[in-house]
Design a protein around this nucleic acid. Structure first.
Lengths: 113, 113
DNA sequence: CAAACATATAAACATTTATTTATGCGATAT
DNA sequence: ATATCGCATAAATAAATGTTTATATGTTTG
């Protein structure tokens, strides 16, 4: 008996799982945080590096990094005066890619404005 | 020359794409909306059906459906007095599944509380 | 037309969230 | 020890968001 791919994965979603999923989605629901994640796709980076790459203020970067850390999407590591952030799980990349792909298509194929 | 899967998809993310992705992520950043999406995984459903399945108030359901529609994640169709909502794209399911999988793992493998 | 039902909308409210400006704190070097 | 650099935190503010209660709109049926 054949079942669609996503259905299997999805039907076993528990209430706690959905809550967790919403929590992670919230962490992804900000353009600056997505830009940070995209930047971290290239590897571990210091806060100052992120700040200059994104062109946002240092406290703002710190705040968003804190949110990403809170959602366990990034891990932190201190080295001397620098603090390095990196993606905690490679799946974050694929989710961002999927999100980007879907969003782009949806907005493109839009019929009415 | 070999490149990781997600990297290819992700590095071509444009500013507009990221903005769109954040917009879609916002639509996913609510537990009730994820529950609605999960419910719509089973197919087209009326508002009243969703209301009784999720156990939330009718205006609240309407509000969240409006948000999902705004993000183009669902499509609407009227049939008599009923209004049916359905997922606009099957990829929404896989993203929810991935989100759920990642979130569950992240919270499980958590070291410190 | 009136009544009943399905859904949307409005108003009101409490929370949350993004951002800025200012300050604190740890690490390094002189 | 003090000055400097990298980063976090605090306070303040504006804007966005989730939820409830009440009301309006559209559809069907008698």
């Amino acid at each position: 008996m054949e079942t669609p791919l996503a259905n299997n994965l999805i039907t076993q979603a528990t209430p706690a799982g959905l809550q967790a999923a919403a929590f992670v989605a919230k962490a992804l629901a900000d353009e600056n945080r997505l830009r940070i994640i995209l930047s971290l796709t290239q590897g571990k980076k210091s806060v100052s590096r992120i700040v200059e790459e994104l062109g946002i203020s240092q406290p703002l970067a710190s705040h968003h990094l804190k949110e990403l850390k809170r959602a366990l999407l990034v891990s932190v590591e201190r080295s001397g005066p620098f603090i390095y952030y990196e993606l905690a799980d490679p799946r974050v990349m694929t989710i961002l890619a999927d999100l980007n792909g879907l969003a782009t298509d949806l907005l493109t194929n839009r019929t009415a404005f």
